[in-house]
Design a protein around this nucleic acid. Structure first.
Lengths: 208, 208
DNA sequence: CGCTAACCTAGAACAAGTTTCAGAGTTGAT
DNA sequence: ATCAACTCTGAAACTTGTTCTAGGTTAGCG
């Protein structure tokens, strides 16, 4: 696999603002990636094919996304943004924060079930990512955190305890997805796990 | 990566009992793998090198372990067994089940910290594994469950609720390890996450 | 308009996981 | 002991991610 690259030339945050044509290229690439992933999952996303589908030279593809993992994590960022928008429209109606978070995650889960191969590609990339992709993975994590905090519908800033709970929920979310994607857990199982971990929210204070 | 293989010829569970020489080969392979992994992690485990180090032809290596992922997951099985043995010797002393489980996991975590590269190789393989490795990954999961249940020190069989909690703890364990390995979480952070999730054990009954 | 730096393209080349195959070497049953 | 069936070896080939090169294109700027 051999991922050595530095942060990409293009993606460096406050760098070049990308011309219109460049923005279009980037979009074509992400679109082609999602399309290929939606068919065969991780393995079906082949860099040469992505390049061809998006009408871009292989070298250019690598200039925009320094590795296949970067590419798929960027795809996940893209999809997550979209999902956050969708979820925001119909906030969950549950009584408790725990219930609302569980409902939100299950909604996201159902969305992923509609494109299981795409989910496979994105989640596998996310957990396989090494340090060279940390900034991007971290961004995904922050976005996920935002979604969960949104669902909790807090009046004020979250307490440290609540933040811990949210982190654990994220852990469970990712790992449960993986067990589902690799066929080792059923959808029902994932539901139970999510509901179980959500109980950590609004939990009566206990020793540390 | 391209993993297509059927269940390996050799590893099929109730199959051939492996002659002594074969057992020795298998052991040499696993030893070489752990050694290479302990240096550079996942990337440093190169199939050609493993074959050479363990004095086995490349084709033979693939007969024993149908892919690099299978090889690393088998290595994890091996290490886990070892660790379970070690942990069993000095059972944790905490008051609560939650405390004992957290202590046990932290002990395991400290062991992994001693060989971070090896941990990296094994954990990355584990989460990257696709369906073709499910049986082996599942075995790892069962072993982990056993370790946790041991730490809980139950008198009787675990309740369904407890089993759910254990599954969530495992999710958190794996995912927290990954965030640590990829440098996105500190050791202290992992500790907090483990302690947080362990609160799910002996939790007063609540709705559903 | 014309220049220059940055960007893009096509294609070859390289690296590492995986497959294949012909020819020994072992083994187990008769 | 002998034969058939497996197993192991060594080496080449194949696949796909990644890097490199040489030459054409574009964008901003004087």
């Amino acid at each position: 696999m051999v991922i050595k690259s530095e942060a990409g030339t293009v993606r460096t945050s406050p760098a070049s603002p990308l011309t219109e044509r460049q923005e279009a290229r980037r979009r074509r690439i992400l679109h082609a990636t999602a399309q290929l992933a939606s068919r065969g999952g991780f393995d079906a996303v082949q860099m040469r094919e992505v390049a061809e589908s998006s009408q871009v030279a292989l070298g250019t593809l690598y200039r925009y996304f320094p590795s296949k993992i970067h590419l798929l994590v960027a795809t996940m960022q893209d999809q997550l943004e979209h999902m956050h928008g969708t979820l925001r429209k119909k906030p969950p109606a549950g009584e408790t924060a725990a219930g609302r978070v569980a409902e939100t995650l299950m909604r996201a889960f159902r969305a992923l079930q509609r494109e299981p191969h795409l989910a496979d590609a994105m989640v596998r990339a996310l957990t396989f990512a090494d340090r060279s992709v940390s900034p991007e993975v971290d961004q995904v994590s922050r976005q996920t955190t935002a979604i969960i905090l949104d669902a909790m519908g807090l009046e004020e800033d979250p307490t440290p305890d609540q933040l811990s709970a949210v982190r654990v929920i994220e852990h469970t979310w990712h790992s449960a997805l993986i067990t589902w994607l690799s066929g080792r857990a059923s959808i029902a199982q994932v539901k139970i796990d999510i509901e179980t971990v959500c109980r950590l929210i609004d939990l009566p204070d206990e020793r540390r």
